[in-house]
Amino acid sequence: MIFLKILKKEMKYKIIFMLLFYVVYVILFVCSQKRIAYYDIFLEVISLIVASSIWGEEQSMDIVLLTDAGLKKIMIARFIAIVLALCLLPGLHTFIFSSEGTRYRLTFVYVVTIFFNCSLAVLIRTIVNDLMGSVIFSFSIYTILIFPGILFGEVGDKIRKLPFYPMFSFDIARDSDFIRNRVVVCIMSVCLIGIAYFILWYKEKKILKINV
């Protein structure tokens, strides 16, 4: 019950917050007829920043930690709110404005990639324990994922073609391979957020263990 109430509040604040980003997006890209060219990069970068800032500084984490809800519940509620706020409008936008043939594929690509980026950024934020550090770290990993060939040469190119590679799924030719890739990336994302949940659980458990 408390979780649903938190989720409701988080959704309200996140969606209002995200609407501002979409206004910027509409003004900058749709009006200048360059929507698809910048669409994915804009959303992926925004998703990394928003998800990395799931917690403010350490002090505001302390306030949350000491409540009945605790860090784990709030992390999950905020994560759901962030993913929904980030996916809702691009999903709808892609679904409405892309051409008949690529409609489902594009929507699926964006939604799953945002889900993956958010999971990755939240996990990094949980480990790094510092807002700026985690944004930089998330961007570094994102850059590695985007340019594996440039950074690692042939090995990078081979890795890029692996069936579970989270980026460039739009280029996969066969529909069955494409769906398998997206499902695997979804599972990977759930695992990442699961690890973040476990880290917070362990952190809380450690405090209890010592103070008994």
């Binding site: 019950m1 408390i2 109430k5 938190i6 509040k9 306030i63 949350v64 409540t67 009945d68 809800a69 709030i74």
Partner: peptide
């Protein structure tokens, strides 16, 4: 209001 919810006031 948000903090009250987090602190379990229903």
């Amino acid at each position: 209001e948000y903090m009250c919810i987090l602190k379990g006031i229903k």
